[in-house]
């Protein structure tokens, strides 16, 4: 069972307290009606599914109940870092720094 650092509680907590909530940084458009069918399809269905660094959303559902974002390596399954919802996607350097 993984330990996940909740950026709100500032603690490493057991995976069973969390739920996964899909890929991160997919922002809902302010005006969906302005989206073409193809754009809307991409927003709804197309996900990056990378091998390696993945930005994803988690929620500390049985803790502080907050959504937050995480960077996880899909090969090693390791969390590289977590950060509060609304914060920008971390840079490569920030991720490297968090690994240490």
């Amino acid at each position: 069972m993984l330990l996940i650092r909740c950026p709100y509680c500032e603690q490493d907590r057991a995976e069973v307290e969390f739920s996964y909530a899909g890929e991160a940084h997919i922002e809902r458009p302010v005006d969906p009606s302005a989206f073409s069918d193809a754009e809307w399809e991409a927003f709804l269905f197309l996900r990056s599914n990378p091998r390696g660094t993945h930005f994803e959303r988690w929620v500390h559902i049985h803790g502080c109940a907050r959504h937050f974002n995480a960077v996880r390596d899909t090969v090693s399954d390791k969390f590289l870092m977590t950060y509060k919802a609304g914060k920008p996607r971390p840079t490569k350097r920030e991720i490297e720094g968090a690994k240490k």
């Binding site: 907050r66 959504h67 609304g86």
Partner: peptide
């Protein structure tokens, strides 16, 4: 509840 919280927290804070 989870659906509502998700939108409230992440899309419309």
């Amino acid at each position: 509840m989870a659906h509502m919280e998700d939108y409230l927290q992440t899309e419309w804070p």
